[in-house]
């Protein structure tokens, strides 16, 4: 740590070190880079962060982070309102958007059910999802949740909750990833892929 750098710099380094991907050393390098380019980088970054902290809020419909409410996806008339893709968090939503394969709308749960951590349905936005689906506008709910014990427990719970609405609930396929070499896949993925095989 830069002992003689002054409390402002030390605080900056300590805060940067809390970011994902940064440790104390890389935070120090980042702080130095920012200080060397104050006008080009540091001040615009500080302004962007302040604006984001002020303006970014969860969408009142889907729960996604955006500067507008409803969010840009929910407000986009070209998106199919009859398809709802349920995701764990904004990271998963951004991953779906990157793929560019889905043109419906989203519902961000804000986490997964976790029996081990004691996180129950009331901690997630599941009631909001049920209310959305119950409006009658939705034709299909797609569960894009993690292929983990918690992810699949959440998927089963949502399926049960939505059963009374009569809306079809589907989930993403599990199996061999594009570019995946069978030799490197774990036994569970191979077994899942084999069970989900389809006519060639």
């Amino acid at each position: 740590m830069a002992a003689s750098a002054g409390p402002e710099i030390e605080r900056l380094i300590a805060l940067l070190a809390k970011l994902p991907g940064l440790g104390p050393r890389s935070a120090r390098r980042s702080a130095l880079a920012l200080l060397r380019r104050r006008d080009q980088l540091m001040r615009p970054l500080a302004q962007a962060m302040a604006e984001a902290a002020e303006r970014v809020k969860p969408c009142g419909i889907c729960g996604a982070l955006d500067t507008t409410d409803p969010c840009s996806t929910c407000a986009d008339p070209s998106r199919d309102a009859g398809l709802i893709c349920v995701v764990e968090d904004d990271g998963a939503r951004w991953a779906m958007e990157r793929a560019g394969a889905f043109r419906g709308r989203y519902h961000v749960l804000g986490g997964l059910l976790s029996a081990l951590d004691g996180r129950g349905p009331e901690a997630l936005r599941i009631n909001e999802l049920v209310a959305r689906v119950a409006t009658g506008e939705v034709r299909e709910v797609i569960l894009a949740l993690a292929a983990t014990v918690d992810g699949q427990t959440t998927a089963h719970y949502i399926t049960e909750r939505l059963a009374s609405t009569g809306v079809p609930v589907t989930s993403l396929a599990r199996g061999v990833p594009v570019g995946g070499d069978l030799d490197w896949l774990d036994d569970g993925t191979i077994a899942q892929a084999l069970r989900a095989r389809r006519p060639a």
């Binding site: 427990t153 569970g188 899942q192």
Partner: peptide, 11 residues
């Protein structure tokens, strides 16, 4: 072995 993935369809 396959582990918990074998039970993903069994809530």
């Amino acid at each position: 072995g396959e582990g918990p993935a074998a039970l993903f369809d069994e809530p």
